[in-house]
């Protein structure tokens, strides 16, 4: 069973000619089939956790360990992490000029699966996945993220999630900027992948709204670079009613 283990993770970033510690000892274990929601106020380090796990070069790991099924994730390059089964759905996916969605998806699937998918089944697989996300087939011929609306970008991220079938999916504020209809479509996509029971999900969000569609098994409150409280789905209800104030006031403001 796939397991992502994060132990005492410390991460810094260079900003304004100074080194700033963002993550200050994160401990978290995500197992296949589980859904963990990480909630916290802006600036608490949630996205830093997501990007550090994916290996973004902007972040420096200064301490701690991350393993996927015992393999040292921190030793892997970004593409190796993806091929090992880590997936990050990004909050702000970038435009890739000159690369069509269909070419991108196929190249990516070939890399992650270790062999090129058979063309006939692949075309069908992509078409059906796009239909489930209410995406127009013409979408496949557009350049990656070029001119996409906010909702289209997020659907495209979830489309990749469905096609690449990772062991661990990290969803970084996938709900941000979506209207209710788009949120529902995107959440249904995530749920379809979860129902397979083969993915561990780390759902990073500022709002409780998405948790009405995607039910977490665990909720963690993130503040000032670490997890300050963990609980079940009921913890989200508490945050909904009381906000983050209890965790930020008097806390270290990083």
């Amino acid at each position: 069973m796939a397991t992502l283990e994060i132990h005492d993770l410390h991460v810094t970033v260079e900003a304004d000619n100074a080194t700033k510690e963002i993550l200050k000892g994160v401990d978290l274990t995500v197992k296949q089939g589980e859904t963990h929601a990480i909630m916290g106020p802006n600036g608490s380090g949630k996205s830093t956790l997501a990007y550090s796990l994916a290996g973004h070069p902007k972040y420096t790991i200064t301490g701690g360990t991350v393993t996927l099924d015992g393999e040292d994730v921190l030793e892997m390059s970004v593409d190796e992490r993806a091929r090992a089964g880590l997936f990050l759905a990004m909050q702000y996916p970038v435009e890739i000029p000159g690369v069509s969605v269909s070419n991108f998806l196929r190249t990516s699937a070939t890399a992650v699966r270790g062999e090129a998918p058979k063309l006939r089944t692949w075309v069908k697989e992509v078409r059906e996945a796009m239909e489930r996300l209410n995406m127009d087939p013409a979408f496949a011929e557009r350049n990656v993220n070029e001119g996409f609306s906010g909702g289209e970008k997020k659907r495209h991220e979830i489309l990749q999630l469905e096609l690449l079938k990772p062991k661990i999916a990290i969803l970084d504020e996938t709900d941000s900027g979506l209207d209710v209809d788009a949120l529902r479509v995107v959440s249904e996509g995530v749920n379809r992948v979860r129902e397979g029971g083969e993915v561990g999900t780390l759902l990073i969000t500022h709002y409780t709204r998405i948790l009405r569609y995607i039910k977490p098994d665990f909720v963690h409150v993130f503040s000032a670079g670490r997890i300050v409280e963990s609980g079940g789905a009921e913890l989200a209800d508490k945050l909904e009613n009381e906000g983050y104030e209890a965790y930020t006031k008097g806390g270290v403001s990083a």
Binding site: G55, A82, M90, P93, P97, V99, N103, T107, A111
Partner: peptide, 28 residues
């Protein structure tokens, strides 16, 4: 073609040299 684009493609399992090739071939 910047570091963020490279990161995005690599985060989908595509090695760096292939990512660059993909972008340039597509462009031309």
């Amino acid at each position: 073609f910047d570091d963020e684009q490279l990161f995005y493609l690599m985060a989908r399992g595509i090695p760096a040299d292939e990512a660059r090739r993909l972008v340039v071939r597509g462009f031309f």
